[in-house]
């Protein structure tokens, strides 16, 4: 009895801090944000209320739902591009690099940029693509262009490029992990049965790496959804993403209720995607026990 009591105290001691932290700094703030999303704006502050006007505005006002659609479009494009670039790289590392030591070194080299300053990695694309930038001056210098063009920067292409660049390592990590886990015997069996390498890839390797692809895609999609740095640095006049709009509601526009409603919608989309990808992963997982 005393041992059980003591154990309970220990458990409470270990769990207490982290639990209190998540309650105070996550659940309570989300609850407040949820409450604010029903308030009415009264410039420059807001008054308590319970109305759905803020949510309705998001779907009735083209200013907002167009941004939301554009954000989803950009996020989808970035996700596809990042997975398409990450897959061959991960595949090459896992199956084509013979030396284990070299493979580790290359893998580490690929994923290290993931944690290196997000802002600076986005910023360098501004210096590369700008009209006084590296790419333009290179093209003029080599005589390919007569004069610098402003076609590269401040448009959706620049945004997709920059965000793809940022999220490729995010995709390499889980795809690499899922490819590593595929037992060699499965593919040997496929080979022994006379199936060609490409069909083996389609029938064995690709399906088994789906969990990795899903995990990478989830990360990329939801983090792209919430980004306001890339639109600010390389996006153009038509480059505002949903996060840009949220940011301005809490800044110059001073409309906290609307900003909170937008944030709740973003939170909802992200949670839906996480749940969906979890489900898909579980449904698609083959039991290799």
């Amino acid at each position: 009895m005393r041992l059980a009591t003591r154990r309970r105290f220990t458990a409470a001691g270990i769990l207490g801090g982290p639990l209190a932290w998540t309650l105070v700094f996550m659940f309570v703030p989300y609850a407040i944000m949820f409450t604010y999303s029903f308030y009415t704006r009264q410039f420059p502050t807001m008054v308590p209320d319970f109305q759905f006007g803020n949510y309705l505005a998001l779907f009735a006002d083209p200013q907002y739902y167009q941004v939301l659609l554009r954000t989803i479009k950009i996020a989808v494009l970035v996700t596809i591009a990042a997975v398409a670039l990450a897959y061959p790289l991960a595949y090459f590392l896992v199956f084509k690099v013979a030396s284990a030591r070299l493979r580790t070194a290359l893998y580490v080299a690929v994923i290290v940029p993931l944690w290196v300053s997000y802002l600076l990695r986005a910023y360098t694309w501004k210096t590369i693509l700008g009209s006084e930038g590296v790419l333009n001056s290179f093209l003029v210098w080599t005589g390919i262009l007569d004069q610098p063009t402003d076609l590269f920067l401040y448009n959706q292409f620049a945004m997709v490029l920059t965000l793809t660049y940022i999220f490729v390592p995010f995709c390499v990590m889980p795809i690499y992990a899922s490819l590593e886990k595929i037992p060699a015997s499965l593919k040997e069996a496929s080979k022994d049965l006379g199936v060609g390498p490409f069909r083996t890839f389609l029938a064995v390797t690709l399906p088994l790496s789906v969990p990795g692809i899903l995990a990478g895609a989830t990360f990329t999609f939801s983090l792209t959804m919430g980004d306001f740095v890339a639109p600010f640095l390389v996006g153009g006049a038509d480059g505002a993403l949903i996060a840009t709009v949220v940011q301005s509601q809490f800044g110059t526009a001073l409309n906290w209720p609307l900003g909170s409603a937008l944030s709740m919608v973003m939170l909802f989309i992200v949670l839906t995607i996480i749940t969906l990808s979890d489900r898909l992963e579980r449904a698609g997982r083959l039991d290799l026990g």
């Binding site: 896992v94 084509k96 284990a100 290359l106």
Partner: peptide, 29 residues
Amino acid sequence: MASAATARRPWRGPRLSAGALGAAAACVA
């Protein structure tokens, strides 16, 4: 994952043209 990277791997996967794949990987890097 970093540990898995160091694991021994006797078999090297299907022979999807290694050269093209290597070039693609180098481009991404």
